[in-house]
């Protein structure tokens, strides 16, 4: 909230600590980073390449989580993001092979927009809760992706596309980092500084009061669901570029990491409260944990257990006690 943007005053640091539950994500991020830095230094944790790898692995989650922050802030949820990313990776790859990279970009984004509009229509006009609409859409999107690709990977031969969308780097800095940062800045500004962002927060914070104040809350919900699907499609395009192919498995299961990133960052599952910066740090923290656990030499099964435990701990600490 407001306290986190006012770091100039001498008391800001004290206020930051006083609000520690709200800022647990930042404290936790630093703490985990420091722990890994000391314990895993000999295994190359602090190696710049390793740190950039964390960014590469987290960028797609972060892109989807930025949009998810809007969805959750409006009091809705989108469970279809992972499957939409997979579908978009396939449509973009197929369109590139037929008609080139520009057509591919259009096809990928159109996939996201179309699914988002359908989700939004079902949620706001037909009146099915977004939890169910997007749960059903998760299966539909995955099914379509499997069907059109015949369950096989679709290669992307355009090197330009692969460079821009996830594969390239400028010097040592991966292009993915720029995608994450640029979309993060846009997301933060839109949520905090535009009338649309205010209306999103108002819709989730008190739908009736918002509607009584003249806000068309159905329109707001429709829009956040379109934004979420579009961002999911973009994440799928980044996956496709990085791996130079589209496949239906890309993004599978990401919805849980995406929602976890947003909630870890301080966005409320019940609406009305959201922060894009927190979400990005939340996504990075999940990436950090994954990376650290791998470097520790844990088996995949152990990683899953440890990651789940850390997320539960962080969210539990951030809850207000009544």
């Amino acid at each position: 909230m407001a306290s986190s943007d006012t770091n100039q005053t001498p008391n800001a640091f004290q206020a930051f600590l006083g609000n520690w539950r709200q800022n647990i994500i930042y404290i936790g991020f630093v703490a985990i980073f420091l722990i890994f830095a000391f314990t895993l230094n000999d295994k190359g944790f602090l190696n710049p390449n390793n740190l950039l790898n964390i960014v590469r692995q987290t960028a797609m989650i972060a892109v989807m989580a930025i949009a998810m922050t809007f969805v959750l802030s409006a009091g809705e949820i989108d469970l279809s993001v992972g499957a939409v990313a997979g579908l978009a990776s396939v449509t973009v790859a197929m369109a590139i092979s037929f008609a080139g990279p520009v057509a591919g970009i259009f096809a990928g984004l159109a996939t996201g927009i179309a699914i988002g509009m359908f989700n939004g229509w079902l949620t706001t006009k037909v009146g099915i809760p977004s939890f169910l609409t997007t749960l059903a859409m998760m299966g539909i999107a995955k099914g379509i992706a499997m069907w059109v690709s015949d369950t096989s990977a679709v290669p992307i031969l355009s090197q330009d596309y692969a460079w821009w969308f996830g594969g390239g780097s400028i010097g040592p800095i991966p292009v993915l980092l720029f995608w994450m940062l640029i979309l993060g800045v846009i997301g933060q500004v839109v949520l905090r500084r535009t009338s649309f962002g205010r209306r999103v927060l108002a819709t989730g914070g008190g739908e009736q009061a918002a509607s009584y104040s003249g806000i068309n809350t159905a329109k707001i919900k429709f829009r956040v669901l379109v934004i979420s699907s579009t961002a999911a499609a973009l994440a799928g395009m980044l996956y496709a570029g990085r791996l130079q192919s589209g496949r239906f498995q890309l993004g599978e299961g990401d919805e849980l990491s995406v929602i976890a990133a947003a909630v870890l960052g301080g966005t409320s599952l019940f609406g009305g409260k959201g922060t894009v910066i927190g979400t990005i740090v939340g996504a990075l923290m999940i990436g950090l944990i994954n990376n650290g656990l791998i470097l520790m030499g844990l088996e995949f099964s152990q990683q899953l257990i440890a990651r789940g435990g850390i997320i539960i701990l962080a969210v539990a600490l951030s809850q207000k006690r009544s």
Partner: peptide
């Protein structure tokens, strides 16, 4: 509490909810 205000939001956010377009 449910129709008039958004309790967790600030006084300023509540007060300007109906005039956001004029202030933007």
């Amino acid at each position: 509490a449910t129709q008039g205000i958004i309790p967790t939001h600030s006084v300023a956010d509540n007060m300007t909810l109906a005039v956001l377009d004029d202030l933007s």
